[in-house]
Simulated scan of single mutants.
Amino acid sequence: MKLGVILLAGLFLSHGSAIAAPTTAHTFQQQVNSLSSTLAHYNNADAATRYHAYKAKMWLSYAVNEHSESSLTVAGQEAMQHAQGIDDALKNHQAVSLTTPVLSVSQVMRRDLWQQAEYLKQHGALEKAPERLAHAEVMLVWAAAEYCELGWRHAKEHFNAAEQALYQVVEATDLKVKNIEWNPDQLPSLQQLNGQGCSGVNSTYWPLLKEIDLPVAKNSLTVPNVVHFALDRAELSLESQKVLDQFITVFKQYPELSVTLLGYTDSRANQHYNLRLAQRRIDAVQAYLLTQGITKQRIQTGAKGATDLQIDEKLKLAHAKSRRVVLQLNDASQIQIETQWQDLQLELEQQKVKVN
Results as ranks from 00 to 15, higher is better:
residue 120 L to Y: 10
residue 151 G to F: 14
residue 128 K to C: 09
residue 141 V to N: 15
residue 144 A to F: 11
residue 122 Q to K: 13
residue 155 A to K: 02
residue 146 E to W: 08
residue 128 K to N: 12
residue 117 A to T: 13
residue 141 V to Y: 00
residue 128 K to Q: 12
residue 143 A to I: 14
residue 117 A to I: 11
residue 151 G to R: 04
residue 135 H to I: 00
residue 126 L to C: 04
residue 139 M to G: 04
residue 117 A to L: 13
residue 137 E to H: 00
residue 135 H to E: 08
residue 156 K to W: 11
residue 149 E to A: 15
residue 144 A to T: 01
residue 128 K to V: 08
residue 121 K to D: 02
residue 147 Y to Q: 07
residue 156 K to F: 05
residue 128 K to D: 10
residue 151 G to N: 01
residue 120 L to N: 08
residue 116 Q to W: 12
residue 126 L to A: 07
residue 130 P to G: 01
residue 120 L to D: 10
residue 126 L to H: 01
residue 141 V to M: 05
residue 117 A to F: 04
residue 133 L to S: 02
residue 143 A to H: 06
residue 129 A to L: 04
residue 118 E to P: 00
residue 131 E to M: 15
residue 125 A to W: 06
residue 154 H to T: 13
residue 148 C to F: 05
residue 116 Q to R: 12
residue 144 A to H: 06
residue 132 R to A: 04
residue 144 A to K: 00
residue 138 V to L: 11
residue 154 H to K: 14
residue 148 C to H: 06
residue 142 W to L: 07
residue 114 W to M: 05
residue 155 A to T: 07
residue 152 W to P: 00
residue 146 E to H: 02
residue 124 G to T: 13
residue 127 E to R: 12
residue 148 C to S: 05
residue 152 W to E: 13
residue 151 G to A: 07
residue 118 E to W: 07
residue 120 L to C: 09
residue 155 A to F: 06
residue 153 R to F: 03
residue 134 A to V: 09
residue 134 A to Y: 06
residue 123 H to D: 10
residue 143 A to P: 00
residue 152 W to V: 14
residue 152 W to Y: 12
residue 126 L to K: 00
residue 152 W to Q: 13
residue 130 P to A: 06
